[in-house]
């Protein structure tokens, strides 16, 4: 049973790590588009959107790599939980304000996802991250 939990943890780490590395790379390749995506939320000034468009993708890439490699592991989970929570809140806020936009989370692939699916995907990621953080069995998958 413990072996199963360890393998499940490894698989979960792999999936989440690859997901965030992919999301980061896609956005890092198109910072201009990502700037517009951030600015479309109408929460931040343009200059801040530009700064975040350059910074956030790399933060996702490093956190994803940290998960995959098992280094700076808890810090990566803490940051990714924070990022995912922020995304859920700003997406809901945009929805409440009647702004129909693409989140830009996964580059052009985001255009094919509805708001509900985006939200669902992020809630799944959040739950998985919290599971990795809190389960002692899942933590055992991290190299010492």
């Amino acid at each position: 049973m413990i072996d199963f939990a360890i393998w499940a943890g490894r698989l979960l780490r792999l999936i989440i790590g690859v997901t965030f590395v992919y999301a980061g790379v896609v956005k890092a390749l198109s910072p201009i588009r990502f700037t517009s995506d951030i600015h479309n939320y109408r929460l931040l000034p343009w200059s801040m959107a530009v700064a975040l468009a350059f910074y956030l993708p790399w933060l996702e890439i490093w956190c994803g790599l940290a998960l995959l490699l098992g280094r700076l592991y808890r810090a990566a989970i803490a940051l990714l939980v924070g990022l995912t929570l922020i995304f859920i809140v700003v997406s809901a806020s945009a929805r409440i304000r009647g702004i129909d936009i693409s989140c830009g989370c996964f580059g052009h692939l985001s255009n094919n996802l509805s708001f509900g699916r985006h939200l669902g995907l992020n809630i799944i990621l959040l739950v998985a991250l919290i599971a990795l953080w809190s389960s002692k069995h899942l933590r055992r998958t991290v190299p010492a």
Binding site: A28, Y55, P57, W58, C63, A75, L79
Partner: peptide
């Protein structure tokens, strides 16, 4: 944990500045 978070935040800053 806070130190490790700062390390990750700084690591992301370097390529972001370059880009």
């Amino acid at each position: 944990l806070i130190r490790e978070i700062l390390v990750l935040l700084c690591l992301a800053l370097l390529p972001a500045l370059g880009q």
